[in-house]
Design a protein around this nucleic acid. Structure first.
Lengths: 258, 258
DNA sequence: CGAATCCTTGAACACCTTCAACAGGGGTGG
DNA sequence: CCACCCCTGTTGAAGGTGTTCAAGGATTCG
């Protein structure tokens, strides 16, 4: 989704560069655009050198200038509570847009930080607005993406509001699994780019709880875990655990919260 | 935001009916539209008879046809977990739009139910799309509204992920207080249109916990509570409680979750 | 190779839930 | 109009899930 090769820091050779050729075409914003419209969009998209693990793409309260699409790697977004606690609000894989929550106020509502070396497409928002007249479906695409994001957030709210620790982790892994498989990766084996800490934070749990859950799910034969690698042995069981917690574990069928 | 008087079921007389005259003008979608554009928007907006407490405006998985703006009264939206538990995802006051999360998929992702007798403006989405060419700022308005909604949801995620029970209730009351005051009502005295059950559900807590918290906040002189009426005695204290839980209560400064 | 960070595991504790019983309305039908 | 019921809301006691505290192992990176 960028128009010319990325300036290289190392020895990586970028090949797929234009939206036209981008493998993320089907996942990203340009879905539904014809060739001409694609070229127009392409012309405003800016490249950046890949950012390293730990670097921020933008920070909370910073002025909003651009949307970003993840091309490779992954990001986490997080907000801060009034007293400085961090809350991870999402993990973002290739093909996904970040920064959407900043449009309304003109300032970023969260910080976006790379979980690994990550390259993104930068879409300057003012230039994109100029394109709306010439690409009428573009605003509609944005609206669709935002609408889907809102629905995603609703499931996160449900997860945090109603699910037990085990259900949360199972749901999280299933969600990742689906997203990986939609990107052509295995849905049964993958490497987590985020730390246990990030996972725990995202799921509203303590790190220790997440760690214990990984261990237990491995003992029970549902998963194979090796530090950041996760293999799903029993997908059905994982689904059951994510749904209602009525799985084989000796856990009470409480109402989720706590 | 509707164009002719509402068909009356009782003896209520509707007066403010067109977007032009609507008192919610500043809160609703039409912000930033000129008179001509307002008339155009006005022409597609449909009236409905007010819906009664408990009635649904739309249901989860139902085909998406329209957005709705609350004109008077209030709504709750909720989703269901796989195993049928209900999770309240939001309360909606006059001037707020619901149904936005349905645009992307074409089917509603939540159910919207009236908490009291409520009247809404219905905005058929296909007709609204037709207007985009003639009112170029309209899609941008929608995007702004959605962006703000996403940010709102992020604070809910933070609330559920990081805050203790007391912080949750305090945050909830402050949020309501601000929204009421923006609508010209008192920020220090208001009536809740939702049950304790809905509040508890929304905050990811048990009803009993919410009830106990109301009692305690009253004992401590922060609130005056009389069933659904809430009076805020000590706004500063409520703010402190919402922020970090480092208030006067003898509560440990744990990390919130649980 | 040593420091730092991440991850894991164990034990005690705490916040909130669950279970239980009761009080207060509001509506319905006698 | 009162009695009854149903639902909502309150309060008390016991219990549990997940946290906190603590320490040790694993991994990374200078």
């Amino acid at each position: 989704m960028a128009k010319t090769p990325i300036p290289l820091t190392g020895a990586i050779t970028q090949i797929k560069v234009a939206c036209n050729d981008c493998t993320l075409f089907q996942l990203c914003l340009p879905v539904g655009l014809d060739r001409h419209e694609l070229d127009l969009l392409d012309s405003i998209i800016q490249r950046r050198r890949p950012i390293d693990r730990g670097e921020s793409l933008f920070s909370m309260r910073e002025k909003f200038r651009s949307l970003f699409a993840v091309r490779s790697g992954s990001l986490k977004t997080y907000t801060l509570t009034e007293d400085g606690r961090e809350q991870v609000t999402g993990f973002h894989l290739p093909g996904e847009l970040v920064g959407l929550d900043a449009i309304g106020t003109g300032a970023h509502g969260c910080t976006a930080q790379a979980l690994e070396t990550t390259s993104v497409c930068e879409i300057p928002f003012d230039r994109m607005e100029e394109l709306w007249a010439r690409i009428p479906v573009l605003p509609r695409q944005i609206i669709d993406v935002m609408s889907n994001a809102m629905r995603e957030e609703n499931s996160l709210v449900t997860l945090l509001g109603k699910k037990s620790a085990e259900e949360r982790l199972a749901s999280f892994l299933l969600n990742l699994s689906e997203r990986f498989s939609r990107r052509g990766y295995s849905s049964r084996e993958f490497n987590l780019s985020m730390s246990r800490n990030d996972i725990a934070n995202y799921l509203g749990l303590a790190v220790e709880t997440v760690s214990r859950l990984f261990s237990r799910l491995q003992e029970e034969g549902v998963l194979v875990v090796d530090s950041r690698f996760v293999g799903v042995n029993d997908l059905e069981r994982l689904r059951a655990l994510a749904g209602s917690g009525a799985g084989a574990s000796g856990r009470s069928a409480n109402n989720g919260v706590v």
